Simulated assay, not measured.
Amino acid sequence: MKYLAAIAGSMLSLAAIAAEPSAWLQAAPANLGGATEKIPDSSFFEVPVSLLDAATSELRDKAFVRQYAQGAAHFGHEDFACPGKSRPYLVRALYSNGGTGGFVLSWIGDSLIVGHVSLGPQGTVLKSALFACLTKEPAQVYSSISGAM
């Protein structure tokens, strides 16, 4: 009986972990319209896994947090600097099939879309964080995950 209780407890824990990323960042609404402006790949990087706990702690209550210029060094990229008048932000991100894809950032109006594209069907969705140089503060941050077969 203890064995069954342990299995049931483990299953509930796994369900809570799997459900958590959807609360981390919502999908972009279908009616979000407007021109898409891609943010250059050189303007952001994914926070390394070894520093992800620190990033998720900072992002506990908000989908983005303004950073100091030196924040990139804290997240493992000492030589990274924001170009022009852009400012550094830590931003929530979601991904699936991390080993076969990459992140894409874009604006639709004042909404920031954090996309992840990869090969293969979508698997388990996991949390991440990006350090990004943005030209404006987002009104909302949304997720978009896609894959190719």
Rank of each mutant, 00 (worst) to 15 (best):
residue 104 V to N: 12
residue 110 D to W: 06
residue 38 K to A: 09
residue 28 A to L: 05
residue 111 S to R: 01
residue 15 A to P: 04
residue 36 T to V: 13
residue 50 S to W: 05
residue 93 A to M: 01
residue 42 S to G: 15
residue 83 P to G: 10
residue 123 G to Q: 08
residue 52 L to C: 12
residue 42 S to H: 11
residue 35 A to F: 13
residue 28 A to T: 05
residue 20 E to K: 13
residue 50 S to D: 10
residue 99 G to E: 10
residue 124 T to N: 03
residue 78 E to L: 08
residue 77 H to R: 13
residue 114 V to T: 07
residue 12 L to C: 14
residue 104 V to I: 15
residue 37 E to K: 14
residue 23 A to C: 03
residue 19 A to T: 05
residue 28 A to E: 10
residue 19 A to E: 06
residue 91 V to L: 05
residue 92 R to S: 05
residue 78 E to D: 08
residue 98 G to W: 02
residue 91 V to W: 00
residue 66 R to E: 10
residue 12 L to W: 11
residue 21 P to H: 12
residue 20 E to Q: 12
residue 47 V to C: 09
residue 9 G to I: 01
residue 13 S to Q: 04
residue 28 A to R: 07
residue 54 A to D: 12
residue 69 A to H: 07
residue 49 V to S: 14
residue 90 L to R: 11
residue 68 Y to V: 06
residue 55 A to Y: 00
residue 122 Q to L: 14
residue 53 D to R: 08
residue 23 A to M: 07
residue 82 C to G: 07
residue 36 T to L: 02
residue 10 S to P: 03
residue 7 I to D: 09
residue 40 P to D: 15
residue 88 P to R: 05
residue 107 W to L: 08
residue 118 S to N: 12
residue 8 A to D: 07
residue 106 S to Q: 15
residue 124 T to G: 04
residue 21 P to M: 14
residue 76 G to V: 11
residue 87 R to V: 12
residue 37 E to R: 14
residue 81 A to W: 04
residue 46 E to V: 10
residue 97 N to D: 06
residue 87 R to F: 07
residue 108 I to C: 06
residue 29 P to C: 00
residue 14 L to R: 13
residue 61 D to C: 02
residue 38 K to W: 08
residue 78 E to K: 11
residue 117 V to A: 11
residue 88 P to F: 04
residue 117 V to I: 11
residue 28 A to K: 10
residue 39 I to T: 12
residue 94 L to W: 00
residue 89 Y to Q: 07
residue 121 P to N: 03
residue 104 V to S: 14
residue 47 V to K: 02
residue 84 G to P: 08
residue 93 A to T: 00
residue 86 S to W: 07
residue 25 L to V: 03
residue 59 L to T: 06
residue 11 M to S: 13
residue 87 R to Y: 02
residue 61 D to Q: 08
residue 123 G to T: 06
residue 68 Y to Q: 09
residue 72 A to H: 06
residue 15 A to L: 14
residue 98 G to H: 08
residue 25 L to A: 02
residue 101 G to A: 08
residue 104 V to G: 09
residue 40 P to Q: 11
residue 115 G to K: 02
residue 67 Q to D: 04
residue 12 L to V: 13
residue 71 G to K: 09
residue 63 A to C: 03
residue 23 A to W: 04
residue 42 S to F: 10
residue 113 I to P: 00
residue 63 A to K: 01
residue 85 K to H: 11
residue 50 S to T: 11
residue 110 D to T: 09
residue 24 W to Q: 00
residue 78 E to R: 10
residue 114 V to L: 09
residue 8 A to I: 12
residue 29 P to N: 01
residue 80 F to D: 07
residue 93 A to I: 00
residue 38 K to Y: 15
residue 41 D to E: 15
residue 113 I to T: 04
residue 119 L to V: 06
residue 45 F to C: 14
residue 27 A to C: 01
residue 58 E to T: 06
residue 22 S to D: 12
residue 92 R to T: 05
